[in-house]
């Protein structure tokens, strides 16, 4: 025991300096060369700053809605619903979201609603929606903003992020970027 205890204490202390200290400082130093110095990727628009990766709550009819969030898009305490797939309370909640969506988007058929628009994400901060989720909101926004639906469809297309290298992963739309572009479309 005695021959082990002092090396254990000393090595732990050196490891603390090395792995918590020096390793962190190296990464921190290199992060200074990243745009915005490692403080998160931001979009600056009209004097306001937004984190492009952090989803925002969009519930106004004039904006594309983002996904439901278990934490109401609170980026200081992110989280998920953690509801099981058969929980009746959860299924009732999804049904309520479907009903609300249909009420605000009268032309949309129920079977066209994609599930990402009525289920909560893992982080509660999902910045994206699927392309289908954007498409079925176009008519509502066109009507409220008095813009031709074709122009908004064009905007959706130009804001669609392709899979990585064209063949890996999902196609998706960053809701914040799309809504910023929407506000600029006059």
């Amino acid at each position: 025991m005695k021959e082990n205890i002092f090396p254990a204490i000393k090595i732990t202390f050196i490891a603390l300096l090395f792995f918590s200290g020096i390793y962190t400082l190296i990464v921190l130093g290199i992060a200074q060369f990243v745009p915005n110095k490692g403080e998160g990727t931001v979009i600056k628009e009209n004097g306001k700053t937004y984190y492009s990766n952090v989803g925002q709550k969009f519930t106004d009819d004039k904006y594309f809605w983002s996904r439901p969030s278990a934490v109401d898009y609170n980026a200081a305490s992110a989280g998920a619903s953690n509801k099981g797939p058969t929980n009746p309370e959860y299924l009732a909640q999804v049904q309520a979201r479907i009903d609300t969506f249909l009420k605000h988007n009268p032309g949309v058929k129920k079977e066209d609603i994609p599930s990402d628009l009525v289920t909560a994400s893992g982080s509660g901060l999902d910045p994206h929606i699927s392309v289908q989720a954007a498409d079925i909101q176009i008519d509502r926004i066109a009507k409220i903003r008095g813009i031709a639906a074709a122009n908004i469809k064009q905007l959706v297309l130009s804001n669609t992020e392709r899979p990585l290298l064209g063949f890996l992963g999902t196609e998706r739309i960053n809701v914040l970027k799309l809504n910023l572009a929407l506000d600029n479309l006059k």
Partner: peptide
């Protein structure tokens, strides 16, 4: 996707999305 959601009559093109992020699928 989740069979209980399928029964509600909506579509699940991305699969079961509760607790998942769109960017990963």
């Amino acid at each position: 996707g989740n069979m209980a959601i399928t029964k509600m009559g909506i579509t699940q093109p991305m699969g079961s999305m509760e607790g998942k992020e769109v960017r990963f699928g």
